[in-house]
Amino acid sequence: MNNSAKRTLKYLSLAVFGMFFFSFALVPLYDVFCEVTGLNGKISQSEEGTSYESNTGRDLTIQFVSHNAEQMPWVFKPSEKIMKVKTGKYSNATFFVKNNTDKPMTARAVPSVAPSNANEYLKKLECFCFEEQFLAPGEEALLPVRFIFDSNMPESINNVALSYTIFDITNYNDMEMAHHDGR
């Protein structure tokens, strides 16, 4: 094999390894992309200190939806299924959870917003989805969400569904969880 063939071989092998690592780089890139664009219903905690309050808000209907991931035995449901709110005003909602098993369990709720373009106008100040939830056997709780819709939200959006899926993460060990920041 001559030298130029060796050189070709070298850069092709590099390309193979490069693309393999690129496939892993897609994971953080994807998260960054979703966060920057607010796509995929991924919600980040709103920055402290920015004010989205205004007096020129309009009416908006919010639906709360709850799902249990497969094999998640907890009771999990919104206290109110539908709320009328105004954009530019803070609102509070709660979700009821109960650990109806006889074991202590840890859970995480993963949020999603539809339509997805409402997402960038939804700011959450407080959300149980930012943290893990621990409940002792039989324990119950009311989990709060405090949020506001930016009044710049397009007129075409009159209905927003805010959905949470609750997952059992009791058996995830902490080391592994540490690699994934909650949203």
């Binding site: 393999f20 496939s23 892993f24 993963v110 899926t165 592994e176």
Partner: peptide, 25 residues
């Protein structure tokens, strides 16, 4: 290599407790 990456991530999700594709994690 991207396909190899995808199945590697699956393997890690299945056996090593990562959550590339698992919403709970």
């Amino acid at each position: 290599p991207v396909l190899a990456g995808a199945v590697t991530m699956m393997l890690m999700d299945i056996h090593f407790g990562t959550s590339f594709f698992n919403a709970a994690g």
